[in-house]
Design a binder for these strands. Structure first.
Lengths: 356, 356
DNA sequence: GGCGATATTGACTGCGAATGCAAGCGCGGC
DNA sequence: GCCGCGCTTGCATTCGCAGTCAATATCGCC
């Protein structure tokens, strides 16, 4: 321990490659090469340098490295609060998988109202190698990224950039098929915010799927993706009509609907009213709800997004590729089963593999 | 691509301060000063430069800036999956407040099993100005940060570093007082993982508080903070004894306990058995559960952590300051009320300000 | 034993911005 | 009218590392 060295240098600001070089008796270039895979360096020199580096606690600076290589190994992830709330796993999975690829996740959180205009400057300031957008980015922002050659992958939305999405429409179709087989004839819909692309896809998917069966989806009310929003929408909706099933644009609202029915409106679910969601959040599996829903393959989605972005950074992928990942119907007990009624419906496993 | 080079330079890799300087007819230093508050520069020169910068879409590089100023404006946040799952708002709030202070959040996600040994090198590689640890970091990691003069704020745990925590023990004491007043005499406890500091604090807090009333907390079983874990622990526990109240170390397990009671064990909550949680997650307020719990002031906690870290970075705060923020009892209907019984217990507002 | 080929190594420059220093400028006071 | 002061501005240097180029060491082969 201690630096007997020249004067009293105990508080050296930062250990640099020069420090390691001096200790190991080699040049700075050698130290640099010792930390770069595939660099031209002999095994024993590398070993010697790494021993010295360990002694000093040296780690190469990604900042300096970024400056010279033009690769920061930083991935910008843009998300709103809703992203974090609606499925906390998304951020975790993204972070984890970005790390596995040897990069780091730089999070840009937007208030739900902010459109993200101010984002790009910050993105550029940190030289992010790529961006994953889990919220809608204005086209100008995407254009600015394109101009800077910063690849962008949109997550669960489309736009003038590559994207990875869950196939909400097909998922909705599977769900609707199940509902129609189970007897649904007068469905209503509780959508998310009118400007949320995911909600729009799910709504259109449901409307089209019901239409294919000659059934109208009506009424459609908009809410805000929250439990309280679902509760309020249910109260509003059930005050004016009596659908046999309420299809919700996400699970959280569906759970709110169920709570409203049971605790405020005196309706039984599923006997008096079927309720479905979308997302398969963990709460939906809880026995108090047993929500029939559609699962997004989050891990697969995030993994694909990260991989695709990596390929774009390396210049290996098409810049506008659109990937759709299949959703999966999860049948539980919040709608009456086919030809059955009540909670003892067909077990989930028997349903999940049905062709549409 | 092809580099027509020479003439056609539309695709300049990156806009630098030199480009702006050339366009504005000034020196690079001037450009630098135009983007630094308080720098010595005349108003009209700054205006001219900013006009040129806007024209070119220039933003100063934080990477280069970090190299010379030794300030990256990056805050490392270390979290596990549990952090993300148990309260998704933590990450969002942290990110948001870090941004408000003009910094960015660099997320280090650990698998729940990883102890974080590999973290420090990455932390140093990115020159983070400070670290917020929402998971337990090994002492060697903290020591390594201290050696590098990287301030660390521990979130909801203590250790050889500054910390911001919720006062779990006092919160538990308030909860226990409420329980005892409500008639609890034979409480049991479902703890989190035995090595989770937060769980230990809550367990000890509960045990001490009951002991002060001459009541033994027994049995105590350990689980994993999950809904399923709570369900299983309840089944296990109720197979061997019949407590009048089950106190859980977090809300998620408490909700699992309630579901187990109602859907598997044929017990009514709160009539046959009281159940309490800790955290006040959003689901606890849902009418299906109406969980009596203790709220952590998350926004306040994260705000304090970010502020304290900022002060440490600026050298203004004490390096080992420990801040405790008060928890707040939230009385709902998962335990029978004082002198009452059943769901029509005393409204929450009447309870929340009682002295212990 | 000599030659070229190959593998290592070191000196040096530059990534993009910040900043100490000195020069330039305008202005007031004598 | 000249000197000096304060405000701006430009020059040159620096942060830590990667990669280019040239120099040297090592080796195989004839």
């Amino acid at each position: 321990m201690g630096q007997p060295d020249g004067a009293d240098e105990t508080a050296h600001a930062r250990v640099t490659s020069y420090d390691v070089a001096r200790l190991a008796g080699v040049s700075q270039s050698a130290v640099s090469r010792a930390f770069r895979d595939g660099a031209s360096i002999s095994p024993d020199m590398r070993a010697r340098i790494q021993r010295a580096a360990r002694e000093l606690g040296y780690a190469p600076s990604n900042i300096a490295r970024a400056l010279i290589t033009q690769r920061s190994r930083l991935i910008g992830v843009v998300a709103t609060r809703n992203t974090a709330r609606n499925n906390p796993d998304i951020l975790f999975h993204l972070g984890h998988q970005i790390q596995e690829a040897g990069n780091r996740m730089l999070v840009f959180t937007l208030p739900d109202t902010d459109s993200g205009e101010g984002i790009p400057d910050d993105l550029f300031a940190y030289h992010v190698d790529g961006v994953i957008a889990a919220t809608s980015l204005p086209d100008e922002v995407l254009a600015a990224c394109a101009r800077r050659r910063i690849p962008v992958v949109l997550f669960n939305r489309t736009g003038p950039a590559a994207s990875v999405s869950c196939d909400h429409a097909t998922g909705m179709r599977d769900l609707v098929s199940h509902l129609v087989r189970s007897g649904t004839r007068t469905p209503a819909f509780i959508a998310g915010p009118a400007d949320a692309p995911v909600s729009v896809e799910r709504l259109n998917g449901a409307r089209d799927a019901f239409a294919a069966h000659g059934i109208a989806l009506d009424p459609v009310v908009h809410s805000d993706y929250s439990h309280e929003g679902g509760r309020a929408a249910a109260a509003q909706l059930l005050a004016i009509c009596r659908p046999d099933t309420i299809v919700c644009a996400n699970d959280t609202m569906a759970l709110g609907v169920i709570d409203a029915c049971r605790h405020e409106l005196g309706l039984r679910v599923p006997e008096d009213l079927g309720v479905t969601g979308f997302d398969n959040i963990s709460q939906s599996a809880w026995p108090s709800y047993a929500l029939t829903t559609v699962a997004q393959p989050f891990e697969q989605l995030t993994r694909t997004a990260v991989r695709m972005l990596g390929e774009l950074v390396e210049g290996e992928a098409m810049p506008r590729e659109r990937r759709l990942m299949p959703a999966r119907l999860v049948v539980r007990e919040s709608v009456v089963g086919e030809g059955h009624s009540g909670p003892e419906a067909i077990p989930a496993a028997a349903q999940e593999r049905n062709p549409p």
